[in-house]
């Protein structure tokens, strides 16, 4: 690996930003007039969701680059981004579910388009892992996974519209979480949280990538020795 390993420094900075973000979200930002304390999960739920989109998008970008110029390295990167996206997607579902319980008294609401979209994406990317683990290693698998990852980013906007359309006949009452306009402090806290979560995703990506590469190298060594 590279000699100037900036990962520990980055991890430390991320921890600091996240610490500040927690303080801002829980203590500094003013309480929401309508929803009270439960609204504070918004500072984590929305950045986590945006980060999940970012991870899926980067995974597809690496997949596109793989198909375009090749390179086994890009397969690893695409896989790792999608892995992070799935983790943050699951966190979006969990935080969204908690928020739904706090504000509507139910753990799940089909009326929340964002949650439904993440459920669809979660299923899609779980299938990505199933596909990956059932195809033999090699160039064929890299390409098949890359194509499926590309279908994922096309599915995000298409599902988004589909779910909006579906809510017209499945769930006519549309819940909105917009509420009153965010104040300056609220928006500032939100931004810090967003930066913190994005950094967290990047650090996790880097660590996971090192882990996956080490694992691959180890297996190659074992193959060579046997």
């Amino acid at each position: 690996m590279s000699s100037r390993n900036n990962l520990p420094l980055l991890a430390f900075a991320t921890t600091a930003v996240l610490g500040i973000a927690v303080v801002l979200a829980l203590l500094v930002a003013p309480e929401d007039v309508d929803q009270g304390v439960s609204q504070r999960i918004f500072y984590f739920h929305v950045p986590i969701a945006l980060t999940a989109y970012l991870c899926f998008g980067l995974g597809a970008w690496k997949a596109l680059r793989l198909l375009w110029v090749g390179g086994e390295r890009r397969d690893f990167e695409s896989y790792t981004w999608i892995h992070q996206g799935t983790i943050f997607g699951a966190l979006t579902l969990i935080t969204g579910s908690i928020w739904a319980k706090a504000s509507w008294g139910v753990w799940w609401s089909w009326g929340s388009n964002q949650l439904v979209l993440f459920l669809v994406l979660f299923l899609f990317y779980c299938a990505y892992f199933m596909l990956r683990f059932s195809v033999d290693e090699g160039a064929r698998r890299e390409r098949i996974c890359a194509v499926y990852a590309l279908f994922g980013v096309a599915l995000i906007p298409v599902s988004f519209f589909a779910i909006r359309l579906a809510s017209d006949f499945i769930h006519p009452t549309v819940f909105t979480r917009e509420g009153p306009q965010m104040t300056g402090t609220m928006f500032g806290s939100f931004l810090v949280c967003w930066v913190g979560i994005t950094l967290l995703a990047y650090v996790m990506y880097r660590i996971e990538l090192v882990g996956k590469r080490t694992d691959a190298n180890l297996r190659e060594l074992r193959e060579a020795l046997s």
């Binding site: 299938a127 199933m130 499926y148 298409v158 599902s159 519209f161």
Partner: peptide, 12 residues
Amino acid sequence: ILPLLFLPLAIP
């Protein structure tokens, strides 16, 4: 594996 791959894409 085919239904797992296909169903999320079939929702829309």
